[in-house]
């Protein structure tokens, strides 16, 4: 038994949890989420470098919530999402156990938000260089080139909403794109509908996205979606000095304000 499985087994034996969400090998040679509700299945639990899915996406699902006491296998992005949804009052201290995987792949059991905050501070990683380079490249383009770049990218979108489904912070019970009175976003996968959807998605995640990049990995047509939210987070950091997913008492920058906020374009 691995250390990860030992921790999981102990939680089940104590009666601390009813459901554990982790990773297991799937029949396609990759890894998938596994939902374990009794200790007999624990030997299927694994963790390796292929386990990137942000499992906190399941936390808000009613099918999962009904189990009551939960545990999640999470790495750094997952823990950041825990703090972000905590700051949005979606999870309370002690609601769930977290088996945190550190940067060397070693598991440890975390429960309260202070432990998670410390873990995140000690395990910070740099954002992927490829993403930063692409962001810089786009920022150095002329406006017309940027428009061309994004219309080309968005024209590939087939409106499958995988980016929404995979995001731990897209938990609205009714998404703006599903509302038809008024119809804010055209449901067809037309250039305008796609543009509206991606702008709305990015704006609704501005200052909330913790940068796990799952939207980009889930996208079947490889639109670099994480760039939009990463660039928004960059401007939020510049304007307001906020960074999501670092503290459980984080204040969402777009629902708070400072009298001395400075802009240079309002006449």
């Amino acid at each position: 038994m691995t250390e990860l499985q030992n921790i999981a087994k102990k939680l089940f034996d104590d009666g601390s949890i009813n459901l554990l969400i982790g990773y297991s090998n799937n029949e396609n040679g990759g890894t998938s989420a596994i939902f374990i509700d009794n200790s007999a299945d624990i030997d299927k639990l694994i963790y390796n470098e292929n386990c990137h899915q942000n499992l906190m996406v399941y936390f808000q699902k009613p099918e999962v919530k009904k189990f009551g006491k939960l545990a999640f296998v999470v790495s750094l992005p997952g823990l950041k999402s825990v703090l972000e949804i905590a700051s949005e009052n979606q999870i309370k201290d002690g609601d769930a156990y977290f088996i945190a995987i550190d940067k060397d792949g070693n598991p440890s059991l975390l429960q309260d938000f202070h432990q998670i905050e410390d873990f995140i501070t000690n395990n910070q990683t740099k954002p992927p260089m490829g993403l930063l380079k692409l962001m810089e490249k786009i920022n150095n383009m002329t406006r017309e080139e940027r428009w061309q770049y994004w219309t080309d990218e968005f024209s590939k979108c087939i409106k499958c909403y995988a980016c929404r489904s995979v995001c731990p912070l897209c938990y609205c019970t009714q998404c703006i794109t599903d509302i038809n009175i008024p119809q804010w976003i055209s449901t067809e996968s037309s250039p305008i509908g796609n543009l509206d959807w991606h702008i709305a998605r990015a704006m609704h995640l501005a200052g909330r996205c913790i940068g796990c990049g799952e939207c980009m990995k889930a996208c079947p047509v490889d639109i670099p979606l994480a760039l939009l939210t990463a660039n928004l987070n960059k401007s939020i950091a510049i304007h307001f000095g906020d960074e999501p997913g670092m503290k459980a008492d984080y204040k969402y920058p777009l629902s708070h304000y400072k009298l001395e906020d400075k802009e240079n374009f309002i006449r």
Binding site: N139, M203, A206, L232, P253, K258, F265
Partner: peptide, 20 residues
């Protein structure tokens, strides 16, 4: 004040996407 923050962020997104 809330609107001011929203426009500061939204304007940067428009610039990034290339809407004038």
């Amino acid at each position: 004040y809330h609107a001011r923050r929203r426009w500061m962020v939204f304007k940067d997104l428009l610039d990034f996407i290339g809407i004038d």
